[in-house]
C-alpha cells in the first residue's frame, strides 16, 4: 500500500461522522471560522469603514487618492483645452459661414440673381409715338445708380421685365422700342428702382434731368411714384465664365 492510498484511506476515515463531544467542539470552531471568513470577506469588499483604519493606512489611501486626483485633474485640463480649441474653431467657422452668406446676398442683389424688395420709386414713361430713345432710358438708369439705387428693373410691352445689372445694354431697337439686353420692349416703360425714395425722386427731377429729357420728346412724359414696398422680382441668369478661372487657388 503506497503512501497516497494510505493517506486517502485515512481521509475517508476522518470524514466518517463521530459524535463525541470533542468532535462537536471542533465542528463549532470550524463553523466559527467559516462564519468569520465570510464576514471578513464581505467586510473588506464592501470597504465601508475608513473610521477604524490605521493612520498609516489612511495616509497611504490619501496619497493614492491625491495622486489619482492629480492625474485626473491633468486629464481635465487637457480635455478642456481640446474642447476650447474645437469650440473656437467652430465659432470662427460659423462666423466665416455667416459672412460668406451675407456677401453672397449682397453680390446676388448686385448681379441680379436674387429678387429684391424695399423702398424705392417707379418711373412710368408714356410714349405713344415711340420717340423716347434708349439713351434717355440709359441716362435715367445711370442717374438712378448715381443716386444710390441698389436694384433696377425695366419692363414694357412685348417682353418680360428685365433686371438691369452692370452688364445690361440698352439699345434702340430697329422699328421703335428698346432692346434691354436681348429683350425687346415697347413703350410705355416702367422703371423700378430700390433705394432711398426721396433721393431717387430728386435725382429724376433735377432741371434738365431725366424727367425733362423725356418730356422733351414729342408726346412723351415721365411720372414718378414713390413706394415703400417696391419689388424687383425679375432675375438675371448668371453667366458662367468660359475662360476665366479664380486665380490663386490652384
Amino acid at each position: 500500500m503506497s503512501t497516497s492510498t494510505r493517506g486517502r484511506l485515512r481521509l475517508r476515515i476522518l470524514l466518517r461522522p463521530r459524535g463525541t463531544r470533542a468532535q462537536l467542539v471542533v465542528a463549532l470552531l470550524c463553523g466559527l471560522l467559516g462564519f468569520a471568513l465570510v464576514t471578513q470577506v464581505h467586510n473588506s469588499t464592501s470597504a465601508t469603514s475608513r473610521r477604524t483604519a490605521r493612520p498609516e493606512d489612511l495616509v497611504r489611501i490619501l496619497d493614492d487618492l491625491s495622486s489619482r486626483s492629480d492625474r485626473l485633474r491633468a486629464e481635465i485640463d487637457t480635455l478642456r483645452a481640446t474642447r476650447d480649441r474645437l469650440a473656437s474653431g467652430q465659432d470662427s467657422g460659423s462666423a466665416a459661414l455667416a459672412e460668406t452668406q451675407r456677401r453672397a446676398t449682397v453680390l446676388g442683389i448686385l448681379a441680379g440673381t436674387i429678387p429684391a424688395s424695399g423702398p424705392g420709386i417707379t418711373i412710368t414713361v408714356r410714349d405713344p409715338q415711340s420717340t423716347v430713345r434708349a439713351d434717355a432710358l440709359l441716362g435715367a438708369v445711370e442717374e438712378l445708380r448715381d443716386a444710390g439705387a441698389e436694384a433696377l428693373q425695366l419692363s414694357g410691352v412685348g417682353g418680360p421685365a428685365v433686371r438691369l445689372v452692370a452688364s445690361t445694354a440698352l439699345l434702340d431697337a430697329p422699328g421703335g422700342g428698346v432692346l434691354a439686353g436681348s429683350t425687346r420692349l415697347r413703350p410705355p416703360y416702367r422703371l423700378l428702382a430700390i433705394g432711398d425714395p426721396a433721393t431717387l425722386r430728386a435725382a429724376m427731377r433735377i432741371p434738365g434731368g431725366v424727367v425733362d429729357t423725356v418730356a422733351a420728346s414729342p408726346g412723351a412724359d415721365a411720372t414718378i411714384t414713390v413706394s415703400n414696398a417696391t419689388s424687383v422680382a425679375a432675375l438675371q441668369a448668371l453667366p458662367r465664365p468660359r475662360y476665366a478661372r479664380p486665380a490663386g487657388a490652384s
Binding site: L14, L15, R16, P17, R18, G19, Q23, L24, V26, A27, L28, C30, G31, L32, L33, G34, F35, A36, L37, V38, T39, H42, N43, T48
Partner: peptide
C-alpha cells in the same frame, strides 16, 4: 465530516446574515 459540514454551515450563515 462534522467539521467540514460545520464549516459550510458557517459560510452559509455568514452569507445569509451578512453581519457588520
Amino acid at each position: 465530516m462534522i467539521g467540514a459540514a460545520a464549516l459550510v454551515l458557517g459560510v452559509v450563515l455568514g452569507l445569509i446574515i451578512q453581519p457588520t
